[in-house]
Design a binder for these strands. Structure first.
Length: 328
DNA sequence: AATCCGGGGCT
DNA sequence: AGCCCAGGATT
């Protein structure tokens, strides 16, 4: 049992970044920010968070917000099921908890989209409950503090680290600072590559001989490559957008046709583009097809930019279509 | 236990 | 060209 908590919290109080979404300790804002921050850098989610809170100030406003608008607010953040789960969770809070989030980690864990980390973060940071919040930062910091060289992607090793964190928890009064402090140490000092050990407030407690090599993770599998040919149908100043299936990759967002239309007046080949996801690559070619009719799924560029949620994978093509329509 | 699910910045 | 990121759900 180490005794680094005081040094760590003192360092945190002096050196932490002022993360605006945690200043008010509003459980709703903590919740939204934690979901947005999953597998996402703080700087990347911040503008999304500001815009979201501006338009959806409380849980009830989320519960009754249109799915299309929620997706548009999430456009570009990735992992879109997070957004779907936020709405499911908001509705459940309205129906079962009179429009509020439950207080304890145990109750929070039952809600959609809220796992062990997020439940612990909300309970400890917003409500001062004495529970852990183990994210990637905490895994890294503890694997170095205790010189754990086993594969942290294994369930057993992650569980082992969670037990160490649970044993390390300070009093209820300090729990909010403590959980944030470990994460902030991981974000600023105990970083993945070239850790800044000379600045570390808990260096004297650290067992790592080669901190830069920890935590160990098994190599990931190679990405699968998929080939796609898009047909981007254009009539006058409108573009045909296609809503994607409600399950699978980019569920519920909008893309373009992937089958050739019948009546093409003119076709123009667009510049190809390769989009890289974590687990798959899309090698895409695209044909802009001028057609002689339209229906309600044809939208102007302005309508698309304002209301249609389109993932980053299609943006290079959207840009080319926009340039074509602009030159015309 | 392994796989799915985004996107972007850093090395 | 990988790796990583204030992870969680699904299979």
């Amino acid at each position: 049992m180490k005794e680094f908590q005081k040094d760590l919290i003192d360092w945190y109080i002096k050196n932490h970044r002022p993360l605006e979404f945690r200043l008010k300790k509003d459980p709703y804002e903590i919740w939204i920010s934690e979901i947005m921050a999953q597998q996402t850098r703080i700087e990347a989610m911040l503008p999304y968070f500001k815009r979201w809170i501006q338009q959806l100030p409380d849980i009830e406003s989320v519960a009754k917000c249109d799915d299309e608008k929620l997706n548009k607010l999430w456009q570009g953040l990735g992992y879109y099921s997070r957004c779907k789960n936020i709405k499911k969770c908001a509705i459940e809070c309205v129906e079962k908890y009179s429009g509020k989030l439950p207080c304890t980690k145990e109750e929070l864990l039952k809600l959609p989209g809220i796992g062990p980390y997020t439940a612990g973060a909300i309970a400890s940071i917003a409500n001062g409950q004495r529970v852990s919040a183990v994210d990637g930062n905490v895994i890294r910091v503890f694997s170095r503090l205790y010189n754990i060289f086993e594969d942290v992607t294994k369930t057993s090793v992650k569980k082992q680290i969670e037990e160490l964190v649970d044993e390390s928890l300070p009093s209820k009064e300090e729990i909010s600072y403590y959980n944030q402090a470990i994460m902030e140490l991981g974000a600023l000092i105990c970083i993945p590559k070239n850790p800044r050990c000379e600045l570390c407030p808990v260096k004297k407690y650290c067992d790592a001989k080669d901190p830069g090599s920890l935590p160990y993770k098994a190599k990931k599998k190679m990405r699968k490559i998929e080939y796609k040919h898009l047909y981007i149908l254009v009539h006058k100043d409108k573009v045909h957008v296609v809503k994607r299936a409600d399950t699978g990759l980019l569920a519920g967002l909008y893309g373009f046709d992937e089958t050739k239309p019948e009546h093409i007046i003119e076709s123009i080949e667009l510049e190809p583009y390769i989009h890289i996801f974590s687990h798959v690559e899309w090698h895409m070619d695209a044909t802009l097809c001028i057609v002689d009719r339209e229906d309600s799924n044809y939208k102007t560029v302005e309508e698309i930019e304002e209301h249609i949620a389109m993932p980053s994978a299609f943006m290079p093509f959207m840009k080319q279509v926009k340039e074509y329509l602009w030159k015309k």
